[in-house]
């Protein structure tokens, strides 16, 4: 963490059912798209499951969710060794640049390590410079895989 950054004291913990609506709201605010069903499904699949993690950053006021991160360990897809995948991260826009994302990222990496993963991976849209800069600042670089796609028309 750069010395210029204020490091806000937050409680990093696994998500509970009471956090779900706050995560949905926060994600909608950050991405501009509400995905209620997606998050309900993520919550069912990711809480209290081995290798799957939905972690939140809560302010010192219990229940006040300032950020979240979702990820799981996946193995042997496309020949990849066990690797932690981060699917989503979000921080309250008014609470940015206080190290909340970094604390969530570090907690997820620790969880992945406990699950036996030796690397962490994510995928970001090229134009999403905010998240790409964030992950790069955590030391992430281009990995051995390249994403390919084609419109199905």
């Amino acid at each position: 963490m750069n010395s210029e950054t204020r490091f806000l004291k937050v409680n990093i913990r696994s998500a509970i059912v009471d956090d779900l609506q706050k995560i949905i709201n926060l994600d909608a605010e950050v991405t501009g798209l509400e995905k209620k069903e997606y998050w309900e499904d993520r919550f069912d699949r990711f809480t209290e499951r081995d290798g799957r993690h939905l972690i939140v950053a809560e302010s010192m006021t219990p229940g006040d969710v300032l950020g979240f991160i979702v990820g799981e360990v996946r193995a042997w897809e496309f020949g990849s060794r066990p690797c932690g995948w981060i699917f989503a991260i979000g921080v309250d826009p008014e609470q940015r640049i206080q190290g909340i994302g970094e604390q969530l990222y570090n907690a997820m990496c620790e969880a992945f390590k406990s699950d036996g993963a030796s690397a962490v991976r994510t995928m970001i849209a090229r134009e999403d410079q905010l998240n790409m800069s964030f992950f790069r600042a955590q030391g992430m670089m281009g990995g051995p895989f390249i994403e390919l796609e084609k419109p199905l028309d």
């Binding site: 090229r126 790409m132 790069r136």
Partner: peptide, 22 residues
């Protein structure tokens, strides 16, 4: 070119210097 621009645009000087230390 798109990949190059996205990559260079996401790496700050601070991040590069940190990467070097890591």
């Amino acid at each position: 070119d798109d990949i190059a621009r996205a990559t260079f645009g996401s790496i700050t000087l601070d991040t590069l210097l940190k990467t070097m230390r890591w």
